[in-house]
Simulated assay, not measured.
Amino acid sequence: MDLRIFTEPQQGATYDTLLSVAKATEDLGFGAFFRSDHYLHMGGDGLPGPTDAWITLAGLARETKRIRLGTLMTAATFRLPGVLAIQVAQVDAMSGGRVELGIGAGWFEKEHTAYGIPFPREKFGRLEEQLEIVTGLWDTPVGADFRYEGRYYSLADSPALPKPAQRPHPPILVGGLGAKRTPALAARFADEFNVPFSSVETSARQFGRVREALVEHGRKAEDLVLSNALVACVGRDDAEVSRRAAAIGREPAELKENGLAGSPAEVVDRIGRFAEVGSTRIYFQILDLHDLDHLELIASQVMPQLG
């Protein structure tokens, strides 16, 4: 089981705070540091304000050496596909080939309004075209041009540069709970499919849909990594769990039902249930970014039991 750290900086975090978490992620042996791609807080005051996902990852690319770096999920509404392809390729080169692109349609209308970003009515079609364009640009041979004519985007005589360090290109992550279009999109483009903040039963159902879509697109089930993202609240005892739950404004009982909460043994057991339905990668959503002891506890008492 690959364990990764996932942060939500729009809730209030500076780059320096994120750097501290990323360095702890690396030092403690986790596989990756991921972050959300949002510009507006969801509860609280959001101070000191948002940080940009790809600018953050560019900085971390130069200040870390081993961990993978990526987004859950980059909003397709935030960036034009050609610009996104350039940004991700550049950060991939800056990191020595450690970047992964998680991308989704975008959903939080209020943040678009707050920062003057258009919020289109049809988002899924745009996401599909973005994936076609980004992967098309990366996969075009050096010296050849890329052209694309879609409903939402058109590219002509593009040199399709720069190329990312990873070949054929950085891993693509798609996720969500859609019953048909989302699994089909994953089967066409993704290297990983992520089910966010859902039960074992929901995950099993969605993983099944994705496996069926893979077969329909001529791919094998093992071609795709299946993963879960879940809020983490781990403690050595009930008092520590309660303290960490209070710090993020949640209740221990609710977190145990919907996330990865409780003692290390309880969390290992719960992760095992996700593994039984096919998950091989877990993103621990860490909401208190100043509690680095939380990461140390997970690394020292959860990680060793999962191999």
Score class of each variant (00 low, 15 high):
S36E: 12
G259T: 02
A190R: 06
G150Q: 01
K256E: 13
D37G: 10
V83Y: 11
R126M: 10
R209W: 06
K163G: 11
F197V: 05
L84C: 04
Q90L: 09
A61H: 06
G150R: 01
R4W: 14
V267M: 11
K256W: 00
F78M: 13
V210H: 05
R281E: 12
D16T: 09
W54Q: 11
A247G: 04
G272M: 09
G272Q: 06
H217Y: 08
H38P: 08
G176T: 13
Q206I: 10
K65Y: 04
A184Q: 15
R243C: 01
G125M: 12
R4C: 15
P162C: 08
R167D: 02
D238C: 00
G235T: 07
K110G: 00
D288G: 00
H290S: 13
E100F: 03
A24I: 00
Q166C: 11
W107P: 10
A179S: 11
G150L: 02
M73S: 05
V142S: 12
L84H: 04
Y15M: 08
L214E: 06
R4M: 14
F197A: 10
R151P: 00
A229K: 12
A85W: 02
L57H: 07
A93L: 15
L84T: 02
A114K: 03
A245V: 00
I286G: 05
A58M: 01
V234L: 01
L287G: 00
F146W: 04
E276H: 05
A204K: 13
